[in-house]
């Protein structure tokens, strides 16, 4: 299977490393980052590309733009792993549309396009008879969409709720364990590389809300947007509040919840029993899926990380390889 990869940040590099070292039956024929691109229909030397990226900051030729790779490279699947643009979803949306118009499958970890334009993109995929898969957009390595689509096939999905932001979960875990203030815990999360310089997206629950929108749209096709989510962040929490919860054998976690029966879409800090399956520590993610037949299923795993996210992308790629002709 021939693959072109757009984006060479931590996710892109993790993916390229795994394709280079594991025998997955994939040939990478195109790579682009924000400033350069490389096309080779016989297969790019991945180790060389990784070294070049590390040494020069560019993966290929600065004259080759990402859109050229999307338009001209020979591939079966476009992997779109450029950074999320939550406002417009561009330029990723254009890359995806172009690839699908060329009747190429698309696999992405990019939340922007899926949260903003899922309906349009999925109908374009259907029209062209290709797959659009985005396992890596929600909860990193956790195969939540595979579980719902295949493992829980035939079940009615009533509700989905859980912990979808590792940064917030890390901050809350540290506030509870060490009695840190929110500011101290945030500083620590930054030092550990778990929080961005501008943590707004994470701590105000926007990232979790975007993932909730993606879940709801994918599972129920209800066309909800970020504005439909009732959202409260963790930035106003006090260590005292967590201690007051602990006196009752509870703690506080940022919970994202979507319930189809009540049209509920909400991200908010909640009091939760310490022994509840969703109470995971550090940067872990956890999701409970509530269904009619299987009842509750809870998945726990790593919500971020380079190789962890690559795991979700590779899962999508190999699913496509199994379902469609490998040799094409």
């Amino acid at each position: 299977m021939k693959v072109a990869i757009i984006g060479m940040g931590s996710v892109g590099r993790g993916l390229i490393e795994m394709i280079a070292t594991k025998d997955l039956g994939m040939i990478v024929t195109g790579i682009a980052d924000s400033k350069s691109g490389i096309i080779n229909e016989h297969g790019i030397d991945l180790q060389k590309a990784l070294v070049r990226k590390k040494e020069t900051g560019l993966c290929g030729d600065p004259k080759i733009k990402a859109m050229e790779v999307v338009t001209n490279a020979k591939y079966d699947v476009l992997v779109e792993v450029s950074p999320t643009n939550a406002e417009t979803g561009e330029p990723a949306i254009s890359y995806m549309k172009t690839a699908m118009q060329r009747k190429k499958h698309v696999v992405t970890s990019n939340k922007g396009p899926i949260a903003l334009a899922y309906k349009k993109l999925i109908s374009l995929a259907k029209k062209n008879g290709v797959e659009l898969r985005h396992e890596a957009t929600v909860a990193g390595a956790i195969p939540v969409f595979h579980t719902i689509e295949h493992g829980l096939a035939g079940n009615e999905i009533y509700a989905i709720y859980g912990i979808l932001n590792g940064t917030c979960n890390y901050i809350l875990t540290r506030m509870a364990d060490e009695g840190l203030t929110y500011e101290q815990a945030l500083l620590e999360a930054r030092e550990m590389g778990y929080a961005e310089a501008d943590p707004t997206y994470d701590v105000q629950g926007i990232d979790a809300a975007i993932k909730l929108v993606i879940l709801a749209n994918t599972v129920w096709g209800n066309g909800v947007t970020l504005d439909d989510v009732d959202r409260t962040g963790i930035n106003l929490l006090t260590p005292d509040a967590i201690r007051l919860a602990e006196e009752e054998d509870c703690t506080i976690r940022l919970i994202a919840e979507a319930d189809r029966r009540t049209d509920l879409l909400r991200v908010s800090p909640r009091i939760i029993r310490k022994n509840h399956p969703l109470v995971v520590n550090g940067t872990l993610n956890a999701i409970t899926i509530v269904t009619d037949m299987a009842r509750d299923i809870t998945l726990i795993g790593r919500g971020a990380g380079s190789v962890e996210t690559a795991s979700a992308i590779i899962g999508d790629l190999l699913f496509i390889a199994t379902c469609y002709d490998r040799r094409s």
Partner: peptide
């Protein structure tokens, strides 16, 4: 004021 509610079982 910030109101934090308990997570109710959804099943």
């Amino acid at each position: 004021l910030l109101l934090i509610e308990p997570l109710e079982e959804m099943a």
